[in-house]
Structures are given as structure tokens and as C-alpha cells.
Design a protein around this nucleic acid. Sequence first.
RNA 1: GCCCGAAUGGCGAAACAGGUAGACGCAAGGGACUUAAAAUCCCUCACCUUCACAGGUAUCCCGGUUCGAUUCCGGGUUCGGGCACCA
Length: 904
Amino acid sequence: MNEQYSPAEVERSAQAFWQQHDSYRAREDGRDKFYCLSMFPYPSGRLHMGHVRNYTISDVIARYQRMRGKNVLHPMGFDAFGLPAENAAIKSGVAPAEWTYSNMSYMKRQLDALGFGFDWSRELATCRPEYYRWEQWLFVQLLKKGLVYRKNSVVNWDPVDHTVLANEQVIDGRGWRSGALVEQREIPQWFLKITDYADQLHDDLATLTEWPEAVRTMQANWIGRSEGVEIDFALADGSGEKLTPAALPGGKLTVYTTRPDTVFGVSFISVAAQHPLALAAAQRDTQVAAFVEEAKQSGVAEAALATQEKKGVALGIDVIHPLTGERVPVWAANFVLMGYGTGAVMAVPAHDQRDWEFASAYGLPKKIVVSATPSLTPPRKGEGLQDAGAAGLQDAGAASSPPPCGEGSGEGAAPSDISQAAFTEHGTLINSGVFNDLAFEAAFNAIADALEQKSAGRRRKNFRLRDWGVSRQRYWGCPIPVVYCKSCGAVPVPEDQLPVVLPEHLKPDGAASPLTKEASFYECACPSCGEPARRETDTFDTFFESSWYYARFACPDLDTAMLDERARYWSPVDQYVGGIEHAVLHLLYARFFHKLMRDVGLPVAGDEPFKRLLCQGMVVAGTYFRDGQNGKKDWINPADVELTAEGAVLRADGQPVQVGGREKMSKSKNNGVDPEIIIRSHGADAVRLFMMFTAPPDQSLEWNEAGIDGAARFLKRLWRMVSEHTAQGAAPALQVQSLSATQKDLRRKTHQTIAKFGDDVGRRLQFNTAIAAAMELVNALQKFDGSTEQDRALRQEALSALVACLAPITPHIAHSLWTALGHAGAVIDATWPEADAAALASDAVKFVVQVNGKLRSSIEMPVGSSNEAVLAAAKADENVAKFLVGLAIKKEIVVPGKLVNFVV
RNA sequence: GCCCGAAUGGCGAAACAGGUAGACGCAAGGGACUUAAAAUCCCUCACCUUCACAGGUAUCCCGGUUCGAUUCCGGGUUCGGGCACCA
């Protein structure tokens, strides 16, 4: 073999080998399958470091499982529809399709240069009719099943560009291109009834034991299941004047609450500005009308709505409290969401923080009805997955700890102090008539019963989750397969007329979708009556495509159905890898689709699409800049910056640049590092090794040029070590029985490394510590200077183990070294090494000795020593005895094989 | 605003079930080799006290549980992810 390690040469020859042997082609066979999937990329142009990290992780897992004997599927494709292609078209005049296809082929080349083992024979792109025709088909099935409906809903409207804006395109309440103040506008849109699956989506989270806890909690909170009560407030006399019956069906205003125990503390009702009652009141009251108008002057993003100043207006309408019979005024408030519950909440300022603030601002009464005095039954604790999340607008603070003791004692129940904030914990009822002295749960039930008996309320399970609006007023997406006919209404496109093909030559201009101006697209005949009709010009949310691609990878060539039996064989995905930013939306929609596909009878296995989930952290880099003209910063790429002891300087001119913070690699801060350049300078293996070594996969990873050098240095060292070893000829067979103590030590280290590496990669997904273990073995080999035949045999064993372990991470160099070490066959097809239990055994154990928890010494004991012997030896230790002299030992603690602690 | 995370030397990190804080690497300093440089190899490297042995302090902050807390609990600070039309 070459003495010098040349990454370019090594990588070229390994990649040529894999291609010649079609090494990554997955075939359905009788072996145990392992489906390893990375979230497919949006073809934005070039690969970025986040992609490199994502795909290195899945490639390592796929290669490891393959060496474990699994039948591995590791596919790749492109999430090809989306907004950036339209933006590129607006900016540079190139059609979204053309831009997308060219990006895809460029990125594919980049992926190959990194040596990722993808089965490209299964490549798919969501913008191709062969793919999206099946989601059109599924949509029609769901429409027939009643899981799809159309209703009005609010969008961001740019009044200058006359177009709908994505939340991302609304900046500080203004359209990103026009700068116009964005308004809310209602338009009809298609919805998928994901709420029909809310219980399943919630309950099945408990089965996802190999998902990160944080993701499961986020999803549980997002679904936000809560048990509460709907309460009807009848319209008070005189309040109904000029109100149409539609404003208040049944003459009752219905609210939803998870805190019926506070119902005696209601001092007003808050409704959303879009609530029918508010709209009706606006008809006769200019102040209310002004408020409703003002509420429209805003985007629809929840974060923006939730942070705006809390405002409201009295509607001049009263309702009757169903239990006290008192008159309660109705207000419209900008923090009540029309989309949640009934769009109306009962306000209890004493026991809800938002109501407290609102009442304080508008001088409304606060009536205390819950006392802090502990009751006999303690309040229920928050139950995580079971009942996670403060779901209702009324449920600001489920008690998570016992309330502090009030001044009062016993039954008397002292009022809580609400002068500074609301008292939101559970407690004992006061000022609540016959319900006084009841604790939360008893009060909840008694009041719910009372309301049900009076037919003024009912227990109700509620979800925070809303139905999924899938209509987008965009061009570069999958056409929604519906036709609008004057006489037949909305008619689904019949199956034999699918796909509805998106014309690929159009160019968006920033105003309305070009589809709305393309007569050849929207003019059609009604599939039902044959009369002239208009085709739907909205397209699907791009989450639609990414919700089922994992299943389609099993049978991407199928043209007679969405899925076939191959999907049952490969599903579920055994390991899914992707960014934490997808923790809720994408992963929830994909879970929903899996259940939908199951329920329309498609061949998928199980109830969940992804068995094990790894969410990797972001790739961040330092930012550098110089102050440019008119106060703007000129951002300088980290690759062009040299870090010195004094600070950062630009390589080109040697002059200083300013150092900004560490941020996610992005175009706007020009801190992205092009993987291609680094591959050229250091090799793909060094990039992969650096990515996997520098941080655990779920943490953010900081780009660091010096770190890449370190990774390359390690590979060089390994190469040289193998080269020096093999230069001496073939090593003899290992004679395990006759090894010296030093030789046994090295062999133990080898087998410890094998065990640690396999556990870290296979079970823990902690690649950084696996690599650290490999480095330790290399260091041990470096120090090991024996030159006997058996020493060479030991080295052969250690180096072979190292190369096999590293093969998933740095596959190219491993490919060369494996052959150089004299092994038949390619390392990609090698079997994962097994640790030899006999080699791991040691005859002495080290105990750490503490006195009062402070480390004083350590002692070595033979394996199997009794606790008494360990204690005696510990006490005999000079430095330990020093700290025991003259003191009585109160307690002796022995942790077997680890530690002794004397408490004096 | 709401939900979910994270915080450990000069830096990236490790400590997996509550048991030696800092493995492994980067940077830095010293040395060897070399005419020289690069490359490579060896040594030092949390902070304070000490010639040394050793001792003290230290895992974002404040409290708690425990023989023992980076790890568990309560309260905070800062940073990051998500909030339904970015993907």
C-alpha cells in the first residue's frame, strides 16, 4: 500500500467499487429488514453543512446495521415543491421547475462525493406527476370518506400585491415585497380532519418509546387534549335587540373551560373579534365595529397575536350566569382565538392570569372563589403525556405543586391574595354557594353535574389541535384535484383522470398564482355533468408531499397504485433522522398520514411510521463582518477569515474584521461553509469524521476549521500505522493462551473498544464517544512497542477491529485499509466484530476511597474481594487513615467495584 | 405570550442507573528530529495554595433532598427550537 494517505485517490476508488458492485441496491428478501431514513432535502441549490450532518448520521447507522447482517434500505429523494423556487423565479426569471431540476442534479453529485450509501434506484422527487398523482388519489379517497371539507379561513393578505403571504413573508406586520400593512382576509380552503385522529395521535405517542421525550411532549402539548365543560350563558333580557338569530344560535353563548370550579368567579365573557356575536354587535355599535376592524389589521401568526397588547371592547350585551342568575357582560378581546374551543371563554380574573390583566386594564371586578387553604384531597399533579399542556384558554396554570398555606386554618378558608397576580392553582372553593369547601376534583364534578341537570352545560373533551388547512394559493405545488361546477358544486376529479398535471413552464411574478391566469389549466369540463367548469387553482401545502414519501420509497416505480406489498415489508421506518425543527408539524402530519393510509386499506405495517427517531442539532458557525456603507454590515465568510491571537483578520488583506456571535449557517449572515470546498481540501472521510466526533448528534455543532485538521490528522495516523504494520508482511495467528500481562492489556483495550463502539453506535447513537474510544485504542497502539510475532498478531487484531468499527463513519479509508490488512472481500460487506468476553476480563479492580464524600485515595483489590476486605484495605490506606484518626465512623458505604465512603 | 430544550477548562466536549468532574480532540506552551521549514514524535495544560507530599475551590445563579448531586426536586437567568402558509 501507499505510505502516504491520499484522500482523493482513496475516495475515488472506494466510490468506483461501490458503484460497480451496485452495493446500495436494496432488495426485498427474507432477511431482517432495517429501514434507515433521513429527512429528504428541499433542493435549494447546494448542499449545506446541515445536510452533511443529517446524512452522515443516517449513513453511519445504515452501514452499521448492514454489517450487523440486516437487509438495509437507505433511500434518498427531493422534497421538490415549495416557495423558494417561486422566489428564485421572481428574482431571476427562471421557471421554478427548471430551477428545481437543476438544483437536484447538482445536489445529487454532491451527495455522491460524500460517499453516502443511498439506493438511488429508488430516487423520487415530489414535483413529478408519478409521485403526486397518488396524493391526489388519496385526497379523493378521503373526500369520499368525509375526512375532507371546505370552509372559510383566514390568510395574510397583501393589499398592494393582491396576494396571499406566507407567515415568513410577513415582516413586522408588513408584506416583505410591498411593505404594505398585512390584513386578515377570509377565503374558502380545503381542510383535512386531523381532529378525527386526535385521540389516536395522542394515545399512540405512548408507543413511541424510542423517540426523544421532548418530541413526544411537544406533540402531546400540541394536540392539547383537555377535559372540560361547555357552559351555556343565555342572552339577558334586552340584549337581543337587533341581533339576528344567526349571531347566537339557540339564544345561548357557549364557552369552553377546563376550570368549571371557578364558575362562580365569572365577571365577564370574552369572545374573539371574529365571533358571530362580536360581528353582530359591530353592526349597531361603531366602537365595536372599530375594534373588529382593528383586529383585522394583523397577520395570522399565533406568536404575533399572542404578544400583542391585550385589548378589548364591551359589546353592550349581557348574558345570564346559569348557576347564579346574575347578568354578565360580554366583551370582545384580541387574545381569544376563534379557532380554539367555541371562540368564547368565561373570564375569571381572580384565577386566570390573562383575565386578571385584562380586568385590571379595564377596571372589571375580580371575585375570589378558590382558596389557597389546602383541602383534604391534594390537587392533581400535571401528568405529562397523560394530560399534558394547559390546553384551554382558561387553564393558565394547572397546579404542579401544593399551594402555599394561607393564613387561615381549617374549614374557614381564607381568600387568596390576588393583589399582584391571579391565583391560578387548584384549591378549595369559597363564595360558591352550595359548592363551598369542595376541592378541585369534587367541585369540577359537582358543578358539571349541576350544569348538566339544568341542561346548561355538558362535559366535553377538547383539543388544541385544529384541522389541517391544506390549500395554498401558490403555483409550485401539487394541484388539488377538484373542479367547481355551477350546477354540481365542488366535484373531485375522477380517478381515471388523475393526475391533474401542473404545467411546468409558468413563472410567478409575486402577485397571484400564475395558474389563476392560465386558462388552459383552469378551463375544464365538469366530470359530473360535462358542462364548462373551473378547475381548482390552489395547490397542496408541501407538508402533504413529505407526509408519505417514506412509504413510497418502498415502491417508487409503482404506477398502478399508491403503495404495494413492498411497503408492508419495509414499514415502519426503523430509524428516522432529521432536524428538531420538525418535531411537531412534519412528524405529526406523517403520523396522521400513516394512519390515513392504513385506514383506506393501503399495505403499511403497524400504526406508526417511524420506530426510532433521532433529531440532530443545527450546524452553527461564527459570524464576521465589517461595517459597510449606510450602517449596513458586510458579512464575511468564516472560510476567508484567519483567527489569530489578537483577533480575526481577512485572509485576503490581513486587516482585522469584527467578530459577531455564533449562528445557524445561513445566507444572510454569510457564515455557511461550502462542504464541497472542504471535501476537496481534506477529503470526505475527514468531513464525516469531524461531523460525528465534534458534538453528540442531538446538540448543535460548531464549525471549526481546526477541528477538520484534527480529524484529517487522525486518519493520516491510522493510515501510517496500518502501512507500517503491513510492510512487515502477514501477521501470524494469535495465541491467546500465552500472552504476557502487557499483551493482555492491549488485547483488553481492543475488545473494550469493540464493545464500546458497538454500544455507542448501535444503542446510544453517541458517535462522538465511539470515535473517542477508537482514538484511545490508536494511542494505546502507538505506545505499544512490542515487536515479537505475537505482538504483530495483536496489532493485526487491533487494527482490523479499528478499521471495521470506523467503516460506517469513514467508509472510504476503511475500504482501502481493510484490503491492505489482507482481508478477503470489501469491508462494507464485513461482519461487525464481536468483543471477546475472555479478553475483557481483568483480575484487579480499583476502588475510590472517600471520607465524607471527599476523594482521599484509591486502592486496587483483586476481583471478587469481600466488602470487609475492601473496607479493611481502605482504612489501612495511609492517606485515608489520616482523615479518620480520632473520629468515629458513623457509616461505611461500599459501592461494589467502584467506591468506598466513610461518614465520620 | 405559550410549548420544548440547553448551559461543564482558553475552545468542542466526556461522565450511560445518584458514586473519581474534565475521557477524547482543538488551541496554547516547552522539547526532540531537521541546515531550515513543514510533517511527525514526546512532555505540560481547570483555578488557587505548596519545593514537594498534599490541601482548598470549581459543572449558569439561589435554595432543597442525600453519606455523596453535572445528574433528582423547587425557584430564577441567559441562549436556542417550535407556534399551524419557510421547509
